Computed example of a mutant assay.
Amino acid sequence: MSDTRLCPQRLGYVHLKVKDLDESLAFWTRAVPLEISARQGSKVYLRGGMQHHWMVLEQSPEPGLGRIALEVENRAELDAFEAHLKVLGIKAQAGDGLDTDRVDRYLRFNDPSGNPLELYCDMVAMPNPPQARTVQLLDIQHVVLAAGDTRAATAFYRDVVGMRESDWVERDVCFLHMKNGWHHGIGVGSFGGAASGLNHICFQPPGLDDVMRARANVRKLGYTITMDLLRHAPSTSVGFYFAGPDTVAEMSFGARHFTEDAPPKPRLLARGLDTIDVWQQGLVDNEQSVIDELRKMAERQQATGGA
């Protein structure tokens, strides 16, 4: 059974406006690591696969999230999305970005929290794969965004963008997946009181060896590990988080994968340390310890995830 609903295929790329382009490039090419595919004015395009870019860094006096871009399957689906947004009264900027943004066609609009989004089709492909690196990457897998109202943000990504709910943590955070089936392509929630913005970006290595090599490299380079090796209860993924000058990055593998023929029933998971990391089970003495540690984690992520 094929899935004909309007829904993006995958997370395509993240555009960040950065304060110091050289400092940002050092992080995203050495710690993550991505490869420069092109420079265009104040922008640098970075890739990890055959697509022209997974990230765009743009020098700006006002650093922050430029946009989250989601790839749709073809032009017909993008046209259908444009009509869908118009019916819903959502203003979207449509354009052809082949020369300026290396995507053939795009729609740009904001989510209810003000996070800028793009839907696009037909990104330029590169003729050769990236050069071999010690840490291999399969894809840019997901982003987690701050939302002033988690329920409203979830309804938007479900009813407007067409994504499906995977899991909730209480009603604080919701994870939603796209057609590629990974447990979440986007997560939305309340993090450290932020009403909008980027909490973190996740990249998918092929397995534990690459995650551990990435961790060793991050430590050698001196970047801060904000959450060390853990296994998440919602997605089952194993990975770690580390902070750069623009936001927090995650390296993880082993996420749950869904088929469109058998979408999951979203779970309502308890808030707790063993939801963030199942290996913490039995190590927490009391509820106040959980609350205190969760607050500290949120503060660390907020302090280092400035985008």
Rank of each mutant, 00 (worst) to 15 (best):
V124F: 03
N115W: 00
V14F: 00
P266H: 05
V169L: 13
T154K: 07
L85Y: 13
C174V: 14
E73T: 09
H257Y: 14
M227T: 11
E82A: 15
T275N: 09
A270E: 12
V248L: 07
A233I: 04
G193A: 08
E35D: 11
S252N: 10
D79K: 09
R158I: 00
V211H: 06
M251L: 15
G239N: 12
L88K: 15
C174T: 10
L269C: 07
V18A: 12
G185C: 09
E260M: 14
V143A: 04
D101S: 03
L269W: 11
D22Y: 04
V14T: 12
G306F: 00
F175V: 03
Q9F: 09
R133I: 00
M163V: 02
F27R: 02
Y45C: 01
L273I: 05
I140F: 07
A155R: 14
P33E: 14
M251V: 10
G162N: 05
S113I: 08
K19W: 07
R47H: 15
G306M: 11
D209M: 10
R213A: 15
L46H: 10
A270G: 02
S42P: 05
L229K: 03
E165D: 07
A26V: 04
Y13W: 12
E71I: 01
M212Y: 07
S60M: 07
D277Y: 08
R213W: 05
L230C: 11
D261P: 03
F203P: 02
L230T: 10
P263G: 08
Y241G: 04
R213P: 01
G48W: 01
L229H: 00
Q204G: 01
N180H: 15
L11V: 00
T29N: 10
L88T: 03
S252Y: 12
G272P: 01
F253T: 14
A216C: 06
E77A: 09
M126V: 04
A94H: 11
P245A: 13
S42N: 14
F258S: 09
M297W: 04
